[in-house]
Amino acid sequence: MNGLIEELQRLFPGIQGEEGGDMPALVVPADQLLAVMKELKERHDFNFLADLTAVDFRDEKRIEMVYHLLAVPEARELRVKVNLNRQHPEVSSLTAIWPAADVQEREVYDLMGVIFQGHPNLKRILCPDDFTGHPLRKDFQLNAEEGRE
């Protein structure tokens, strides 16, 4: 697996490897995400998008996109992360590579406010269309009256 990270680093010098977690992980610059994912899918057998989500690190002023890939059928796992600016979180959509990203990116947009460039139908999915705010942000108040206008 170390070989994989080194090989990717040769192609994409901006990538960092993360060790010691429950699975190998990469931190990828936002502008290289699409190219890295294509490479992982086409040349390294990570053919399945297992999960896609985001975490709000409010104190560090960043939103972290977290992708989990799976190599089917041997079930190897890989985590790919992208750090985004909390004020203007924007990242490329993966819908062109995996249609599975469609609904999951809409969910992240809805609940976390991340904009996915190139998404064919980026609108709210779980909250009503007239909802304001993004509930999974840490500064969203859990108050019955708040959030609705």
């Binding site: 297992a50 999960d51 989500t53 989990h68 249609p99 599975a100 469609d102 609904v103 999951q104 969910e107």
Partner: peptide, 10 residues
């Protein structure tokens, strides 16, 4: 990550 959510997306 719920399977029904993704399956329904298809």
């Amino acid at each position: 990550h719920s399977p029904s959510f993704v399956n329904l997306g298809a």
